[in-house]
Lab assay of single mutants.
Amino acid sequence: DIIVVALYDYEAIHHEDLSFQKGDQMVVLEESGEWWKARSLATRKEGYIPSNYVARVDS
């Protein structure tokens, strides 16, 4: 799995977006363009995230 960590807070604009806080970790489910589908490890919610707001966690 690709794990990313939030670099900034993000408040969902559309209902399919995923809100998150700086430091939150998410599993990337699908990478396509600038918006990635991800699942929050904390809340288990899924939605689209702006890929420029996150960084990959080296395992």
Rank of each mutant, 00 (worst) to 15 (best):
D1P: 15
D1L: 15
D1F: 15
D1K: 12
D1R: 12
I2R: 11
I2E: 06
I2Y: 15
I2Q: 10
I2S: 09
I2L: 11
I2K: 12
I2P: 07
I3R: 07
I3H: 06
I3Y: 09
I3Q: 04
I3E: 03
V4I: 09
V4A: 05
V4L: 05
V5L: 06
V5K: 05
V5D: 01
V5W: 05
V5F: 08
V5S: 04
V5R: 06
V5A: 04
A6R: 00
A6F: 02
A6K: 01
A6C: 07
A6G: 07
A6H: 01
L7M: 09
L7P: 00
L7W: 03
L7S: 02
L7I: 09
L7N: 03
L7F: 03
L7A: 02
L7R: 04
L7E: 03
Y8W: 10
Y8N: 06
Y8E: 07
Y8D: 06
Y8C: 13
Y8K: 11
Y8I: 07
D9K: 06
D9S: 09
D9L: 03
D9R: 06
D9N: 10
D9G: 06
D9F: 03
D9I: 04
Y10A: 01
Y10G: 01
Y10D: 00
Y10Q: 01
E11V: 14
E11S: 10
E11P: 06
E11D: 12
E11Q: 13
E11C: 12
E11A: 12
E11G: 06
A12C: 04
A12D: 02
A12E: 03
A12I: 02
A12N: 04
A12Y: 02
I13P: 07
I13D: 08
I13Y: 09
I13H: 10
I13F: 09
I13V: 13
I13N: 10
I13W: 08
I13C: 12
I13R: 14
H14Q: 07
H14D: 09
H14M: 08
H14R: 14
H14E: 07
H15G: 12
H15Q: 13
H15S: 14
H15D: 15
H15E: 15
H15L: 14
H15T: 14
H15A: 14
H15C: 12
H15P: 15
H15N: 13
H15R: 11
E16G: 15
E16M: 12
E16V: 08
E16S: 13
E16R: 14
E16K: 10
D17P: 02
D17Q: 15
D17C: 14
D17K: 09
D17G: 15
D17V: 09
D17R: 09
D17N: 11
L18P: 01
L18N: 01
L18K: 00
L18H: 02
L18V: 03
L18C: 02
S19Q: 05
S19I: 03
S19Y: 04
S19D: 06
S19C: 07
S19F: 03
F20S: 00
F20C: 03
F20L: 03
F20V: 03
Q21I: 10
Q21A: 11
Q21P: 02
Q21K: 15
Q21C: 14
Q21N: 12
K22H: 05
K22D: 01
K22L: 07
K22P: 03
K22Y: 05
K22C: 09
K22M: 08
K22N: 04
K22I: 09
K22R: 10
K22E: 08
G23D: 05
G23Q: 03
G23I: 00
D24V: 03
D24E: 15
D24N: 04
D24T: 05
D24M: 05
D24K: 00
Q25S: 08
Q25T: 12
Q25D: 02
Q25Y: 15
M26C: 02
M26L: 13
M26W: 02
M26I: 06
M26S: 00
M26Y: 02
M26K: 00
V27S: 05
V27D: 02
V27N: 04
V27L: 14
V27A: 09
V27T: 07
V27E: 08
V27W: 10
V28Y: 01
V28L: 13
V28M: 04
V28N: 03
V28I: 14
V28H: 00
L29W: 06
L29G: 02
L29Y: 07
L29N: 03
L29E: 04
L29P: 00
L29H: 04
L29Q: 04
L29V: 08
L29D: 03
L29S: 05
E30G: 08
E30S: 10
E30L: 09
E30P: 03
E31N: 14
E31D: 15
E31S: 15
E31M: 15
S32I: 13
S32H: 15
S32L: 13
S32P: 05
S32R: 14
S32Y: 14
G33C: 08
G33V: 04
G33Y: 05
G33D: 06
G33E: 05
G33K: 04
G33A: 06
G33H: 05
E34P: 11
E34L: 14
E34W: 13
E34K: 11
W35R: 14
W35Y: 12
W35F: 11
W35T: 08
W35K: 13
W35C: 09
W36N: 03
W36Y: 14
W36G: 01
W36L: 14
W36A: 05
W36P: 02
W36T: 07
W36I: 13
K37W: 15
K37D: 02
K37F: 15
K37T: 06
K37C: 11
A38D: 01
A38P: 01
A38H: 01
A38V: 15
A38T: 04
A38G: 04
R39K: 10
R39L: 11
R39M: 14
S40H: 15
S40A: 10
S40N: 13
S40C: 10
S40K: 10
S40G: 04
S40R: 06
S40T: 07
L41Y: 07
L41T: 08
L41H: 04
L41V: 10
L41C: 13
L41I: 11
L41R: 05
A42C: 11
A42W: 06
A42F: 08
A42I: 12
A42T: 13
A42D: 09
A42G: 08
A42K: 14
A42S: 12
T43F: 03
T43M: 03
T43K: 04
R44Q: 14
R44C: 15
R44S: 14
K45G: 07
K45N: 09
K45M: 11
K45D: 08
K45W: 05
K45Y: 06
E46H: 07
E46K: 04
E46P: 02
E46I: 13
G47T: 00
G47A: 01
G47F: 02
G47L: 01
G47N: 01
G47Y: 02
G47W: 03
Y48K: 09
Y48I: 07
Y48E: 02
Y48Q: 07
Y48M: 14
Y48P: 00
Y48S: 05
Y48C: 13
Y48R: 12
Y48N: 10
I49H: 01
I49A: 01
I49G: 00
I49Q: 01
I49R: 00
P50T: 02
P50N: 10
P50Y: 07
P50V: 02
P50R: 06
P50Q: 07
S51A: 13
S51N: 07
S51P: 10
S51Y: 10
S51D: 03
S51V: 07
N52P: 06
N52D: 10
N52M: 10
N52W: 15
N52I: 09
N52Q: 11
N52V: 09
N52T: 12
N52A: 14
Y53D: 01
Y53F: 12
Y53R: 08
Y53A: 09
Y53C: 09
Y53Q: 05
V54Q: 00
V54K: 02
V54D: 00
V54F: 12
V54P: 01
V54C: 06
V54A: 03
V54T: 04
V54Y: 02
A55S: 10
A55D: 07
A55H: 09
A55Y: 10
A55I: 14
A55G: 07
A55Q: 13
R56F: 12
R56M: 09
R56S: 07
R56V: 12
R56A: 07
V57Q: 08
V57K: 08
V57S: 08
V57L: 14
V57H: 07
V57D: 07
V57M: 11
D58N: 13
S59G: 13
S59M: 14
S59F: 12
S59L: 12
S59N: 13
